[in-house]
Design a protein around this nucleic acid. Sequence first.
DNA 1: ATGCCGGGATTTTCCCGA
Length: 279
Amino acid sequence: MRIATWNVNSIRARVRRTVDWMVREDIDVLAMQEIKCRPDQFPADVFEEAGYELAIHGLNQWNGVAFASRLPIEDVVTAFTDMPGFLKGEEGPGLPLEARAMGATINGVRLWSLYVPNGRSLEDPHYIYKLDWLARLKTDAAAWLAANPGVPFALMGDFNVAPFDSDMGDPTVIPGLSTHVSQPERDALAAFGEIGLTDVVRPIVPEGFTYWDYKQLRFPRNEGMRIDFILGSPDFANLVTDASIHRNERKGEAPSDHVPVVVDLDLPTEDDDDRPMIF
DNA sequence: ATGCCGGGATTTTCCCGA
């Protein structure tokens, strides 16, 4: 089974490019972020014609997450336990939830598509929201792992944190003083290791960014960031046979500012089971 | 080469992104 995560930065603006890539790369499951639309606006027909079913969570033109899968999508949820909300100018509990998380079980694997809040600046309430969001995600993941031993589990998405200085190639971003590279954000991401989740891509692809700003020639200069990750449980990591960052998807006509991150799992798909035996 | 920001809506200007 081949699964991927991709912040598509508007699925309506990039549906043809997205689905063409999935077919070309034989992707079974794609976790999308920043679809930037409601389900009724999502270009479902293009995915369905290519053999993918969908689970979509979008509330408005902001954020939005989804799964596209060749295999059945089961047990979908659109938030984790105690997920914090956000509303500009407001604070405290009970704020509206944003469309930033979707959990689903596919082929016996529990997956999340996650769009972690940006943070905006170290002084902004959005930064506290980001740290709180990550901490509560960890708590929910820990509880789920304890309740579901043996089920492969992965958090996939745009974490909006560059864990190491080598993951930050934008010369205007200052480690420790900018969002994405502050110590509390890095600590919040590293904390997933405390519950046994590890970056399953980095051991296979140690170098490379997953995002380049549209502005100021960041891509031609290769001044990007590595902020999109697949964090797997030990049962998930044991299935991983390969991984790749599809840098070429930043090229060409109307790209997203992020590129896909892919892992191959040693798990048969239904298609494999249906394939006739050849003697 | 990969080329100087792009998407969406409250659309002709603003908000958001990282």
